[in-house]
Every structure is written in structure tokens, then in C-alpha cells.
Design a protein around this nucleic acid. Structure first.
Length: 182
DNA sequence: AAACATTGCAACCGCCTCTTG
DNA sequence: ACAAGAGGCGGTTGCAATGTT
């Protein structure tokens, strides 16, 4: 048996947000601040799931959001950060003021991927594209990953500590790479 | 003008991590 | 130490807008 859902779907609105819903959410957060997302919908008079409210606020209603087209500088920074971090959209977003992880993720998938492919760069590993071997390499990686899965479970606990150490090292490396102070 | 294809992005889903009791 | 609940994240989907035939 899985976890219980975060909200009762039968009694919540889904899909696009209306102006009225946006206004309710904005005015509630302006008055009470960001708090318990689970109880917020009822308190704010919204028939929405808490997660949905959080997403709407973080990605579209927050007053500090930049919106509009990405600049060339932002493009290059995203590419650089993705090269260093991979699909860590929230970490990348943290380094782009006014941008959200969802926005960057969408922008990556719709624009930057194509841009890199146009330059002959593989968007996954940021290396040059080898048209002949790409498919074979991909297959090999999939097979390797699948057979490696079981062994990884056992190693997971052991690698967790290493991950944290690597993350902090990466943080230093990252700041140096994009020209920020440590 | 209509039908169809493609693109872009808002929103959802499910899993993982963190916090709390 | 453990379980449960809440928040956070990345992957994916659905659909409106736009472009093409």
C-alpha cells in the first residue's frame, strides 16, 4: 500500500489557475506569509492541493520573479552550471536571481538543448556529439545502469557521506567556475 | 480558411529528503 | 531508532498558441 495522497482529489480544482484563485493566494501569503502549505488552501479559501499552491506561488506569483526572456549571459551561465551540476535545477535556479527551477528546466528542454545540439555539443555530457556511436553508447549505458542497480542499493548508504563531501567540494569549485566568492 | 504539426510552458505526479514526535 | 507527515525536487504530461501545408 502506498502513501496517502497529499490532498483529496475529488474536492480540489485542477488545471490552470484563475485570476480569483491567484488573488486569494497572493493576499493570503501577503497577510500570513509562506507557512504550512498543507493547511493553506483551506485557510485561504482555495479548493486546491497545498502542493499546487506552493508551485503556483514559487513559480509564478512571487513578487521577486524576473519573467521575460533569458539573456545571453543567463544562457551561458545555465549551460556552465548544468555542465557542473547536471539536472540539479533548484541549485541552478538558486544562482539565477528571479528565475525558478521549473522555468530553467523548461528553458533547458525547449531552447538550450537545441542550441547545444546546433553547436555539435551533447546536452547530456557537454562533450562533442559522435553521431555514429551515440546510440550504441546510450544502449550500453542503459544496460550497465540496469545491471548495476542492485549493487548500488547496497552501496547507497556508504556513498551518502561521500556525496555530502563531494557536494561541498563542488560548491567551492562552482563558485570559482562562475566567478563568485567562496 | 481549414486541417494538421510543432512548440512552449504551466501544472501534475510520484519519489526522496527532512523534520518532528 | 523509528515512523509518519510535510516540503521539495525532477521528470513528464496536457493543452493553448503558433507555424506550416
Amino acid at each position: 500500500m502506498g502513501r496517502s495522497p497529499c490532498c483529496e482529489k475529488a474536492h480540489t480544482n485542477r488545471g490552470a489557475w484563475s485570476k480569483e484563485e491567484d488573488q486569494k493566494l497572493i493576499s493570503y501569503i501577503k497577510t500570513h506569509g509562506e507557512g504550512c502549505w498543507r493547511s493553506l488552501p483551506e485557510a485561504a479559501g482555495l479548493l486546491r492541493c497545498g502542493k499546487s499552491c506552493r508551485l503556483r506561488w514559487i513559480n509564478y506569483l512571487r513578487p521577486d520573479l524576473k519573467r521575460g526572456n533569458f539573456t545571453v549571459e543567463e544562457d551561458e551561465l545555465i549551460i556552465k552550471l548544468h555542465d557542473l551540476l547536471g539536472n540539479k535545477w533548484s541549485v541552478i535556479a538558486a544562482r539565477l536571481p528571479g528565475r525558478t527551477d521549473n522555468e530553467i528546466k523548461n528553458y533547458w528542454n525547449t531552447h538550450i538543448k537545441r542550441k547545444l545540439l546546433g553547436r555539435g555539443i551533447d546536452p547530456h555530457n557537454h562533450g562533442p556529439i559522435n553521431h555514429v556511436t551515440t546510440l550504441e553508447t546510450h544502449r550500453a549505458v542503459v544496460i550497465q545502469t540496469m545491471s548495476k542497480g542492485a549493487a548500488d542499493d547496497e552501496d547507497a548508504a556508504a556513498t551518502e557521506k561521500g556525496d555530502r563531501e563531494r557536494d561541498s567540494a563542488l560548491e567551492l569549485d562552482l563558485n570559482l567556475s562562475i566567478g563568485l566568492p567562496r
